[in-house]
Computed example of a mutant assay.
Amino acid sequence: MTAPPASRGSVLLVEDETMIRMLVADMLADLGYDVAAEAGDIDHAMKLARSAQFDIAILDVNVNGKLISPVAEAVASRNLPFVFATGYGVEGVPEQYRNHPALQKPFRLETLQQAIEAALGRGAS
């Protein structure tokens, strides 16, 4: 049995599908990231985006039929990076945020790592 990797940072995870949120949390742990906070609805996500301590956010674009834009704006206002996760392709990402990395669901561990590294502004390690 190997020791878990040292933490590479903490993540705010917003995803309305519980099973997907659990899967992404496991993927993040495999990559060495801690899930600092998670939300399955926009209201809870807004509170966390404004107050939780995290290094990067992974944001589902459509949370229970509501666009993630207000949460992305709250994260951006704190000068923190974020990555979108969407089943709608890049067209599903709010236009003003299309310069941010976006993951097409379903995605693989390597793709998640690449998107996080891109958002953090460093090459994949």
Rank of each mutant, 00 (worst) to 15 (best):
M1P: 01
M1W: 01
P4N: 11
P4A: 14
A6D: 09
G9A: 04
S10E: 07
V11I: 13
V11W: 00
V14D: 01
E15R: 02
D16W: 06
D16L: 09
I20G: 08
A25D: 00
A25P: 00
D26K: 13
M27N: 03
M27L: 13
L28D: 05
L28G: 07
A29P: 00
A29Y: 01
D30Y: 05
G32H: 00
Y33V: 04
D34R: 09
D34T: 13
A36S: 07
A37H: 02
A37C: 05
I42L: 15
M46E: 13
A49Q: 07
S51M: 01
A52L: 09
D55L: 06
A57R: 02
D60Q: 12
V61G: 05
V61H: 06
V61K: 07
N62T: 06
N62Q: 12
V63E: 03
N64I: 11
G65D: 06
G65N: 10
L67H: 08
L67M: 14
S69E: 14
A72Y: 07
E73C: 05
A76I: 01
A76K: 09
S77H: 10
R78K: 04
R78W: 03
N79R: 13
N79W: 04
P81Y: 07
P81T: 10
A85N: 00
G87R: 05
G87Q: 02
V93S: 10
P94V: 07
L103V: 11
K105C: 03
P106S: 09
F107H: 10
T111D: 12
L112G: 04
Q113F: 11
Q113N: 15
Q114F: 11
A115S: 06
L120P: 03
L120N: 10
L120R: 15
G121W: 14
G121M: 12
R122V: 13
R122D: 03
G123W: 06
